[in-house]
Design a protein around this nucleic acid. Structure first.
Lengths: 185, 185
DNA sequence: CGCGACGTTGATTTGCCTCAACGATTGTGG
DNA sequence: CCACAATCGTTGAGGCAAATCAACGTCGCG
């Protein structure tokens, strides 16, 4: 947080009062469809993903999160309506959570947090726009290469079929891409 | 703005002091690659789009904006680095602009604006996530139908080839989809 | 050990693209 | 006000990237 804003003692104390640290196990869900997403979560240690299961039964990964990232069903959280996404731990993880109401109150009392969450949301949006763009203009192989370059640590930590579902291709096709890249180099 | 926050007299005056209203002509650019995007723009009247031209020369529409939407190269704006996108007026339009520095100052002086722009960014992010999802799980025809349902007014106002480039398909293919839908109903 | 989850490989299919040609409309200069 | 060009949408033939389906090897875990 100190990368974006400076916190005085009072603000820091108020923050500590509402942050809850939780340990979650591999395969455990912190958000599920039908339940409103009441918290945003900050990853201290571990890895999680947000995904969606389409009516046909195929699953689509919206986002991964590792150390120092934020994660939630953001639509559900922002609008305070029931979620349509799953948020699941891929490893045993430690996260810090802040509730929706607590966040709003904190922002009202300490504008510095308003600023912080504005920064987070703005960067997240700019990032998401980039992803839309890269999905529009790039081939499957290019998307894989781009992602490997940007997030090598994620590529190593998550199963290949989840990566495929994030990149918008089938696991079989990702496998073929990787084989191709391995032989041609 | 009053949908999200209440402004007192002083805040309103400060806002009015830095907002610049501009008229722009059809085909005029308000952002171009290479130049840093110094303002965010709020559409009072008219229609604009953000797009990107790939190395191969095909163009990809990132966003449309009509009355009451915000538009900019958000990545360039947030990080204050040179833009890689075009923002172009599709009709003669009237927009209100706020500069980056002015916005930051305004937010510092009046937390209510910090709050407002946090809301805008959060909603924009949630929206963008939805789009990523729908690009992942839906076919070209489904994406077209979804968009027509959500934004019928945009479908009517923008040329079909721009819509195609927003939806991630070729103009020819969109034409065939429309023909298909017309005959089967 | 045995089962299920995961990755790989190959054969076949398909959704969408490319390219090319052709009307319809728009707008622009003479 | 018309001629002509440019822009935009449509249609069809053919091609390719990626999906689907199916079979098989491997590994980790209960």
């Amino acid at each position: 947080m100190s990368r974006f804003v400076d916190l005085d003692e009072e603000a820091r104390a108020a923050l500590n009062k509402i942050v809850k640290t939780r340990s979650i196990r591999r395969r455990q869900f912190i958000v599920q469809p039908g339940f409103t997403c009441t918290h945003q979560s900050h990853v201290v240690q571990g890895a999680l993903r947000v995904y969606f299961i389409s009516p046909e039964g195929t699953d689509h990964t919206i986002q991964f999160a590792i150390e120092d990232w934020w994660i939630s069903d953001f639509y559900s959280y922002v609008h305070q309506v029931p979620a349509s996404l799953y948020v699941e731990a891929l490893e045993n993880s430690t996260i810090q959570q802040i509730g929706f109401e607590d966040t709003e109150n904190l922002c009202r009392d300490f504008p510095v947090f308003e600023r912080f969450f504005r920064m987070v949301a703005q960067k997240a949006f700019a990032f998401s726009q980039r992803r839309v763009l890269s999905n529009l203009e790039k081939t499957a192989e290019e998307r894989y290469l781009e992602f490997s370059e940007l997030y090598p640590s994620i590529v190593q930590r998550v199963p290949q079929y989840m990566l495929a579902s994030y990149l918008g291709m089938t696991p079989e096709f990702l496998s073929k891409i990787r084989k191709n890249l391995a032989t041609n180099s």
